[in-house]
Simulated assay, not measured.
Amino acid sequence: MEKIILDCDPGHDDAIAILLAAGDPRVELLAITTVAGNQTLPKVTRNALSVCAIAGIRVPVAAGVDRPLVEPQRVAEDIHGDSGLDGPALPPPAFELDGRHGVQVIVDTVMAHEPGTVTLVATGPLTNVALAMRLRPAIVERVKRVVVMGGAHTRGNTTPAAEFNIAVDPEAAEAVFRGAWEVTMVGLDLTHQALATDELHERVRAIGGEVSGFVLDVWEFFGETYRTVFGFRHPPIHDACCVAAVIDSAVFTTAKADVRVELRGEWTRGMTVVDFADVPAMRHGSSPGDFRTEVALELDWPRFADLVVGAIGRLSASA
Rank of each mutant, 00 (worst) to 15 (best):
P235W: 05
R100M: 10
R303F: 05
W301E: 02
C241F: 00
Q104D: 15
I247K: 03
F276E: 08
R283N: 09
V295W: 01
D278N: 15
A305S: 11
G84L: 09
A250G: 00
E294I: 00
D78N: 12
L85Q: 07
D248Y: 05
V211C: 15
E266G: 06
D7E: 10
A240M: 08
K256G: 05
L85V: 12
D306Q: 08
E141I: 03
C8D: 02
E182S: 09
P302G: 06
V218M: 14
S318T: 15
L131D: 02
V27P: 10
R283S: 13
E199K: 13
G87Q: 09
A194G: 07
G208V: 13
H101Y: 04
P137E: 06
G11L: 08
P160V: 07
P235N: 11
S50Q: 12
V308G: 01
E210T: 15
L307T: 03
P235H: 08
A317E: 15
G223Y: 02
T109D: 03
G285N: 09
R205C: 11
V218F: 06
L131Y: 01
R26D: 12
E202V: 08
A296L: 03
G310L: 10
H101P: 01
L69P: 00
G64A: 07
R260Y: 03
V143E: 03
A196D: 09
L188H: 02
W219M: 15
G223I: 04
T119R: 01
E96V: 14
V295F: 05
S212F: 10
F291A: 07
E28T: 14
Q73I: 12
E210C: 13
H80S: 10
G56A: 15
V168E: 01
A172K: 01
V121C: 03
A63E: 10
D169P: 07
E114W: 00
G56D: 15
D9S: 14
A138V: 00
K144S: 05
G37Q: 06
I166E: 00
A94G: 15
R100F: 08
G11V: 08
P302E: 09
R269I: 08
K3D: 07
G313S: 15
R314N: 12
A53K: 14
L135N: 03
A62P: 01
R260F: 03
T117D: 02
L69G: 04
G151E: 02
V215T: 12
G313W: 10
E77P: 02
T228S: 12
R26E: 11
K144T: 01
A130G: 01
G289P: 09
R46A: 14
P60N: 12
E71S: 05
V229S: 07
D198T: 13
T109G: 06
V186M: 07
V35W: 01
L20F: 07
T272W: 05
T45D: 09
A130D: 07
T154S: 14
C52A: 15
A22I: 11
A173C: 05
T197C: 09
R74V: 12
S287Q: 13
F214D: 13
A257Y: 04
V140A: 01
H101I: 11
A112H: 05
P10L: 13
L307Y: 02
M271N: 00
R205Q: 15
E141A: 10
V140K: 03
H113S: 07
F230W: 13
P92F: 14
A206R: 14
T119H: 03
